[in-house]
Design a protein around this nucleic acid. Structure first.
Length: 154
DNA sequence: GCCAACGTTGGC
DNA sequence: GCCAACGTTGGC
């Protein structure tokens, strides 16, 4: 099986790594961008590792790790008028947005900040660091994954 | 709070 | 299909 790690962005004020830790396994929903949706629905596989990244906070950082559990399923929040993620154009018979169950695996020993990642001399592009990047679900290149794991375990 | 970058919408 | 306007993301 092909090994592909991912990075999932979340605003800690909305849903944090601590929230994931307390729930142990939770639906990763609310993704409302087509490219992110396609990664989440089509490219992720059961058992893939994910990095949890806190955005729009001080400092922005990778804060922990998790794992994809099971297959993609329709994101229930798109059908809930009370949800901020409600999409009136999405049909039950043909859902537009999808979610995945994500299991908590652990916090990093300390947050691995965006600034620190930018300082690493790795020539392989990493979408997280790309100018203007806004994807909330993105693949982690193997060389970046390896370095992040080495950092975590040192 | 500012603003650059990007995605989406909608008029034409 | 073009593109201007607008809304959102997200670092700083």
């Amino acid at each position: 099986m092909l090994f592909c790690p991912w990075l999932l962005k979340t605003e800690p004020g909305v849903f944090s790594i601590d929230d994931l830790a307390s729930r142990q396994c939770e639906a990763w929903d609310g993704v409302r961008n087509y490219q992110a949706r396609n990664y989440l629905r089509d490219s992720m596989r059961d058992g893939d590792s994910v990095l949890i990244y806190h955005s729009s906070c001080q400092p922005s950082a990778i804060v922990g790790q998790g794992r994809v559990r099971g297959e993609a399923f329709a994101d229930a929040s798109q059908f809930d008028p009370a949800s901020p993620y409600f999409d009136s154009a999405s049909k039950m018979q043909q859902p537009r947005w999808f979610a995945r169950m994500i299991a908590y695996e652990g916090h990093f020993p300390r947050p691995l900040t965006l600034a620190e990642l930018r300082s690493w001399p790795i020539p392989t592009p990493f979408a997280l660091l790309a100018r203007g990047n806004r994807l909330s679900v993105l693949p982690v290149p193997a060389v970046w994954w390896d370095q992040i794991q080495a950092w975590r375990q040192r």
